[in-house]
Simulated scan of single mutants.
Amino acid sequence: MLASSVRHDGRSAATSEAVYPDLCARRVFITGGGSGIGAALVEAFVRQGAHVAFVDINADVSHALVDRIRDLGPAPWWRRCDVTDVHSLQQAITDAAQALGALDVLVNNVGSDDRHALEDVTPVYWEQRIGINQRAAFFAIQAVVPGMRRQGRGSIINLGSTGWQTKNAGYPCYAMAKSSMNGMTRGMAKSLGEHRIRINVLSPGWVMTERQRMLWLTAESEKELMENQCLPDKIMPADIASMALFLASDASRACTAQEFVVDAGWT
């Protein structure tokens, strides 16, 4: 069974290229699941038959997503949540586990690549950027690990970025926070691995979400993209979701402490 969607160029593309039977009925928690890559993740896991919980700060897009995918699989559990509020985030994870059962998969997807100049960053702004792009991932992991330990298994997927690897300018706080996903992942892998909890980084390239197209895709930047990517097709949110499904499933049972890059060969 293939679940299809429409690509940017009008051709059909698989939202989920493969079916992973072990993901059926698994419990998955996704941060920032209401739109963009997050929405593609929610839909992809629902199509697999997984029980999905997600949080997002935007209630309107989250409601719309749930309505759109209601016939594709189990209805997602979701809650409006500002992930910079650690207590609220961890409470949402606790409540989702109570509603769905012990969580098997955590996808730390939430992020914000708002542009900012070095000289304009204040301590308050720095804390906000770190709160979204780094701290939320750490404390989400802290909240799910006890349940995963009791089960003797789990998969944690931290969304990284290739932006800092290609030395993109314009978001130093974001670059710093996203680069730390690699260090955090490798720093936790050994202790988590003792309980068969796997932890990996999934680093997207330039993904053509609605936000990216609206804010930063121009004729000039599209030309740069085509010059730097090895593959001529734009990366879509479904491409990131496909890798996440693999990392969540038992098909990747021997993969941990690694970075998996989906950037059409740019880096």
Rank of each mutant, 00 (worst) to 15 (best):
R80F: 00
D60L: 09
A59V: 14
S35V: 09
R68E: 14
L41F: 08
R68W: 00
V52H: 10
L89G: 03
V61H: 12
W77V: 12
L65V: 06
L41R: 06
H51K: 15
G34Y: 05
A50P: 05
R79A: 14
R79L: 10
I93P: 02
H63N: 14
R68L: 08
H51D: 13
T94A: 14
G38S: 07
F54R: 11
G36H: 06
T84Y: 01
V52F: 11
G36A: 08
G33D: 04
R68C: 01
L89D: 02
H51S: 12
G49S: 10
S88A: 15
Q48T: 02
V66R: 12
G73E: 07
A40Q: 08
T94N: 07
A59C: 03
D95W: 00
D71K: 12
D71T: 14
E43P: 00
D85A: 10
D95N: 12
L89A: 03
R47E: 15
A40N: 08
A39R: 14
V86N: 01
A53N: 11
Q91F: 00
I57C: 06
W77L: 13
L72Y: 07
Q91I: 02
V61R: 13
P74V: 01
A75S: 13
V86T: 15
T94P: 00
I69Q: 03
T84H: 00
S62P: 07
D67F: 00
V52P: 11
A64I: 01
A40L: 10
T84R: 15
S62W: 06
R70N: 02
I57D: 01
G33L: 06
V66Q: 10
P74M: 02
G73N: 09
C81F: 02
D82P: 07
V55D: 04
S35K: 13
R47D: 08
F54N: 08
V52M: 11
L72K: 14
L41C: 05
V61M: 04
V61K: 13
H51C: 13
I93N: 01
A40S: 15
A64D: 14
I57M: 12
R79I: 01
W78K: 05
A44D: 07
A50V: 04
V86K: 11
A40W: 09
W77N: 03
A39G: 11
G32I: 11
L41S: 04
R80N: 02
L89Q: 06
E43D: 07
D60F: 01
G73D: 08
G49Q: 08
D82K: 07
G73T: 11
R68T: 12
P74Q: 10
S88H: 10
T94C: 03
T84E: 09
A92Y: 06
G34M: 05
D71V: 04
V66T: 14
A39F: 04
G73A: 10
A39C: 07
S88Q: 14
S88F: 00
Q48M: 09
W77Y: 15
V61F: 00
V52R: 10
L65D: 04
L89I: 01
L65T: 03
G38E: 06
R68H: 12
S35D: 13
G36V: 04
D82R: 09
A92Q: 04
A39L: 05
A50Q: 05
V86R: 14
L89W: 02
F54I: 09
